[in-house]
Design a protein around this nucleic acid. Sequence first.
DNA 1: CGCGCCAGTCAAAGCGCTTTGGCATTTGAA
DNA 2: TTCAAATGCCAAAGCGCTTTGACTGGCGCG
Lengths: 341, 341
Amino acid sequence: MNLKQLSEHLNLSQTTVSRALNGYPEVSETTRQRVAEAAQRMNYSPNARARGLATGRALAIGHVIPVSSKHEMVNPIFGDYVSGAGETYSKAGYDMVLTLVDDATEAETYRTIKSRGNVDGIIVHGPKIDDPRIPLLLDLDLPFVVHGRSSRTTGDYAWVDINNRRAFERATRYLLELRHTRIALLNGLEDMDFAYRRRIGYGNALAEAGIAPDPALMRSAEMTEVYGYRSAREMLAMANPPTAFLVSSMISALGVQRALVDAGLKMGRDISVITHDDDLSYLKNGLDVPIFTATRSSVREAGVRSAQLLLDIIHQRASARTQLLEAELIIGTSTGPAPKD
Amino acid sequence: MNLKQLSEHLNLSQTTVSRALNGYPEVSETTRQRVAEAAQRMNYSPNARARGLATGRALAIGHVIPVSSKHEMVNPIFGDYVSGAGETYSKAGYDMVLTLVDDATEAETYRTIKSRGNVDGIIVHGPKIDDPRIPLLLDLDLPFVVHGRSSRTTGDYAWVDINNRRAFERATRYLLELRHTRIALLNGLEDMDFAYRRRIGYGNALAEAGIAPDPALMRSAEMTEVYGYRSAREMLAMANPPTAFLVSSMISALGVQRALVDAGLKMGRDISVITHDDDLSYLKNGLDVPIFTATRSSVREAGVRSAQLLLDIIHQRASARTQLLEAELIIGTSTGPAPKD
DNA sequence: CGCGCCAGTCAAAGCGCTTTGGCATTTGAA
DNA sequence: TTCAAATGCCAAAGCGCTTTGACTGGCGCG
C-alpha cells in the first residue's frame, strides 16, 4: 500500500492525501477524516526512505559505538543508556541507528554517515581527553551531542555529562572525614575523559587534606569484576595496605567485595568502599539500605537527556547546549571510620 | 556531493558513474579507476535513502526491543548481543536500527516497520512461550530471525537458540551426582521461553533421580542481583534449606553469593552454586579458574550467528534456518559434595 | 564491402514521497 | 452586485539514486 494506491482508492490526489495525513491546513476537516480513517484501515504508513528523500530529513539518530580491537569490552552501561535514549526517540517518532565501528576508521565513518544521510544527528559515546572526533564533527556540520565531555578540546559543542570531578571529590572527602588516609582509587581507563576527571577530583580532595597521592594506590583499567578483585587482592597484600577503596563502577566494586571476603575482611568495618553507581536497572545497589556508599547518577536519565537535547538542537529549539548533572552521594553500609591501629 | 555533481565533474553520465562504483561489467577498467579515484578524493558516498528507494533494499536490519511498562529492566546481555550482531552487520555494509516499543502496541509496530520499509529484516528478541509475534511476522512476509525460540508456536520460522533445557538438565544432574537433593532453582521469568525450557531441564533431571520438585525451592523473576540475594537469604532461613542453587544469571548468582557471605557460609563447601554464564565481556567468570561452576554460552556469539543467519536469509543463501548452540558445563569452585548431616 | 556484434556510454524512467504553484469554487466585505 | 480573499483541491516537479533500453563507434567475419 502506497500513497498512489491510497489516493486512487479515495479518488483524491496524492497531494491532498499527503497533506491530510501531515496535518496541513489546506484540507477540509471532512476530507481529513476520510483520509485518516482509510489510512488506518488499510494500514498505510508512508515509506520512510521516500519521505526522507523528499524532505531531506531522516527521522533517525545515529549512535556510533567505537569498538576497539584492543579491548573489546562492551560497556555494561550501554543497555540502560540506550533504553533511555530510545524511549525518547520513540516518542518523537525517530529511529535509532547503531553503527559499530572500529576505532581505526572512525574519522572516515563520520564523513560517510554525513554523506549517506540516513541520520539527522549523532550521539558521540565514550569521549576521550582531547577527542579528535569533536573538531571533525564540528567541521562536518552534522548536529551532535556528546555523552560526556572532552577536556582540552576547543570549540563549542553540545554535551550532557555528570560532574565526575565533583562526585569523586565529595566521595574522597567523605572518606577523609572518616579518618581514612590511605585511599585506593580503582579508576576506569584514564584516557577516557570521565576517568580523568574523577582522578582530578580524587586528587583535589587529597590535596586539600595535605595528603600526597600514592601511585601504588592508583589504578586505571577497564572496569570489569576481575579488575576490582585482583586490584583489591594485590593492594591488601601490600606492606601498608589501603583502608578504603574508591571504585569507578559497581561491577568492579563487586570484585573488590569478593576480594574482601576472601581476605576475611568485613566491608564497612575493616575496609571502606565507595563506588560510582550508574543506577543500572539490573544492578540496583541494594533495596532500602544501599549496600555500597556510592556516587549515584542514572545513566538511563543521561540517555534521556542527551537524546532530548539532540532532538532540540535538530529542531532548533535548544535553549542551552550543555547539561551538567550532579551525582548524589548516598551513604550505604560499605563505609565506616578508619580502623585505629 | 551527489552523483550528479560527481558525474558532471568527470564528464560522464550518472549511469556510468553509478555502474562504475557498483562494479557492473559494462564499464571500461580505465573509466572505473578514474571514477573510483575521484569518488574517494571527493569523499562521495551515495545517499542511502535514494539508493534504498531505487533498489527497494534498505541495507539495514531492525531490532525491536519490547520495553515492558511493567518491569522496565534492560537486559544486561543486551550490550554483548548487540555488539556481536553489529559487528556482523558492519562487515556486510548493513546498519542496525533499534526500535524500542511498548509491548502493548507491538503488533501494530511490526506492521508499520514493514510498510515504512526502512529495514530489510528484523531480529525478534525475548520470545515468550507461544509468542504471537511469530505468526504475525510470518504473515507479514518480512524476513526475521528469533533470538531464542517459542515453544508451542506452530509455523516454520528461523531461530538461533542455545539448548537451555539440556544445559540445565546437565547442571542439575551434576549437582545430583554430588549428592545434593535439595536443589533450588532461581529462574528467570517463566513466561519467557528460555526460562521455561530451563525449568523443564531441571525438572527432567530431578525426575530421573526420583526426586519430586519442591515448589518452595523454585522461583521465577527478573534476574537482578537483589533477586538472587533475597531468594537465597529467604531459602537459607527455611527449616529445611537447600544445599545447592541453580541460578539463571551471573548477576543473580552474585546476589546469592552475597547472601551466603552474610550467612557465614562458604560457597563450594557449605553450599553449591551453579549459574548460567552468558560470557559477558564485563563480567567474566574468574580468570583461569572459574569462580562459578556454570553452563556457559556466549551471547555475543549468538548475536553474530543470528545476524549472519538473517543476512543469509535475506540474500537467499541460508542453508539451515535454525541453529541450536550447546552450552558447555564448566566446573568452578562454587560446587562440591553435599554436606553430610 | 556490408553486416552483425560487442564494448562503452548515455538519456530517461521510475522508486514513493513532499511541496510548489496553480486553478476552480465559495465566501465575505464593500 | 462585484470583486478580492479564502478555501479546497490538483498536476507536476524534484529529492538522489538504479536500471532499462537505446545508441554509438570499432571490429571481425563472411
